[in-house]
Write a protein that binds this DNA or RNA. Structure first.
Length: 477
RNA sequence: GGCCCCUUCGUCUAGUGGUCCAGGAUAUCUGGUUCUCAUCCAGAAGACCGCGGGUUCGAAUCCCGCAGGGGUCACCA
């Protein structure tokens, strides 16, 4: 059995959002699953829509999530070039072959004339078919006009690895453009040539192409090519409505998610589980498990909504699975500004307290800022606390003072601090919710924070005592 | 409008004729974990399986119709 070869063939027309990258991810998973090859091809035949720099951006997005290709437009390979704009001669050669076999002809109409035909079809509320206007004696193609495929209308039935058995009638077959008047091939032509030359065995693409497949089948026949196996992915839907995810619904690219503190592994797991599962109740998959278990047959046919909540949950899970060292490395760009002079050792201590609490790495500042800067007392936090708001301010003040004095005589390691807190509880006869509540606020002035003893241990004796004293003196206001 | 595809808890999904008065996860809510938040644990609520007909002793699962949604009908991919 020949090894399978899949490809991801994006266009450099902007950014690669998470919906689009899934197609690439699945193609990659399939290739790896069967120990085949994964090829990265750049489909840059539309000069008008090209956005400069987006080819590099594509590479960055794929690299950051750990998708690696065996041949590609950046690294080359035996069947290149892999950038379509570098393959113009190849398309010309194939075009010549079709012309010679009588299956292509020069399009003599101006775009305006074609638009008139199209408008007419619209008025009659029927599908536009260029072949109804096929010229009887087209001029010899000189490369300045579009070259059209001369189709042979007929019905097709074919198998799609995801969608199952599909069939259409001859009414969908039309004469489409192979080479545009600017000399560049259309996607419709170029991808067929490229997939053949690059020996692609499986085409994985979005459902916007499904309606064109019969036309491709017609062209494969004209070219005497065996079509690759096809797999059509349903769209990923935006957070609202039923349209496919787009930039307009706030779709972000992979790099945006990394910047927002998401982990590549979480992203990969999440994107893979949109529309795919292994048939068990497993939700979390390592990269190796995905490769091992992935199959096209288990890709769902319906569109899946991109639910960021689920991604956040998954990301929290992957963060918790990180070792302290790994987390420290990954978190390096996410520390609050005020942390820049803090030692790595201190940061590691702080990070260990925040570890379980992080949903994304970007949560780090709000979880830890009081370790780096003096928090501003916010008595609203007391006024809205359901235990503390019932207590007289003077009593809270007394508690803070008692705590201060007790802690002044305590070693600042976690065990001693825990013991001291317990003794305070005894001595004051207060509920933990009150005593610990006011101490916690006096120390952090944050709506939430790590456990008390750990927090004090990291803050250190000097800072802890100063903050408690400060809280006690400002409380009268 | 033609053609094609899709349709199970809010969301991601399991489910290929009986073990499904539909399971898991997430999100939500409640309780527990000496304080908050998070984790973890326990529990609750949440889907008349898009609707209507069949077939069958029996259907989320098979068939037919309908509806809704989506895609496509480019010198874009």
């Amino acid at each position: 059995m020949t090894p399978i070869r899949t490809r991801f063939a994006p266009s450099p027309t902007g950014f690669l959002h998470v919906g689009n990258i899934r197609t690439g991810l699945f193609a990659w998973l399939l290739a790896r699953h069967y120990n085949g090859q994964f090829i990265l091809r750049l489909e840059d035949t539309d000069k008008k829509r090209e956005v400069s720099g987006s080819d590099q951006h594509l590479l960055d997005c794929l690299k950051v999530i750990g998708v690696e290709w065996d041949e590609g437009f950046d690294i080359g390979g035996p069947l290149g070039p892999y950038r379509q704009s570098d393959r113009l001669d190849i398309y010309k050669k194939w075009a010549q072959k079709i012309i010679e076999s009588g299956r292509a002809y020069a399009d003599p109409y101006t775009p305006e004339e074609v638009e008139t035909f199209r408008e007419q079809a619209r008025q009659e509320k029927c599908a536009f078919l260029y072949r109804n206007h096929r010229p009887e004696n087209p001029p010899v193609w000189d490369g300045t006009t579009p070259l059209r495929f001369k189709s042979e209308p007929k019905g097709y039935s074919w198998h799609d690895e995801v969608m199952g058995d599909l069939a259409t009638g001859p009414e969908v077959i039309d004469d489409f453009i192979l080479i545009k008047s600017d000399g560049y091939p259309t996607y419709n032509f170029a991808h067929i040539v490229d997939d053949a030359e690059m020996q692609i065995t499986h085409i994985i693409r979005g459902q916007e192409f499904i309606a064109s497949v019969p036309n491709y089948l017609n062209l494969y026949e004209a070219l005497s090519l065996t079509p690759p196996i096809m797999a059509t992915m349903p769209h990923i839907l935006g957070t609202s409505g039923n349209k496919k995810l787009s930039k307009r619904d706030g779709a972000k690219d992979v790099l945006d998610y990394i910047r927002d503190g998401f982990l590549p592994d979480a992203l990969v797991n999440f994107i893979a589980s949109l529309g795919w599962n292994d048939g068990t109740e497993q939700e979390l998959f390592t990269r190796e498990e995905l490769i091992e278990k992935f199959s096209l047959e288990r890709v769902g046919r319906g569109g899946a909504r991109f639910d960021e909540q689920r991604l956040i949950w998954m990301n929290g899970h992957y963060i918790r699975e990180l070792s302290p060292d790994e987390l420290f490395k990954k978190a390096s760009d996410f520390w609050p500004e005020a942390a820049k002079d803090t030692s790595d050792e201190k940061k590691r201590q702080i990070l260990s307290l925040a570890h379980d609490r992080l949903k994304t790495l970007a949560d780090l500042p709000q979880l830890t800022s009081f370790f780096f800067i003096e928090p501003t007392p916010d008595w609203n936090l007391v006024a809205t606390n359901k235990q503390l708001k019932k207590i007289e301010r003077t009593e809270l003040q007394a508690l803070l003072k008692t705590a201060h004095d007790k802690l002044a005589a305590t070693e600042f390691d976690e065990a001693s601090l825990t013991a001291a807190l317990n003794e305070l509880l005894q001595a004051t006869q207060q509920k933990p919710a009150v005593l610990f509540g006011i101490i916690r606020l006096g120390l952090t002035w944050a709506p939430f924070s790590p456990g008390l003893a750990e927090t004090m241990a990291v803050l250190g004796k000097e800072v802890t005592l100063r903050r408690l004293e400060n809280a006690a003196t400002t409380i009268v206001n």
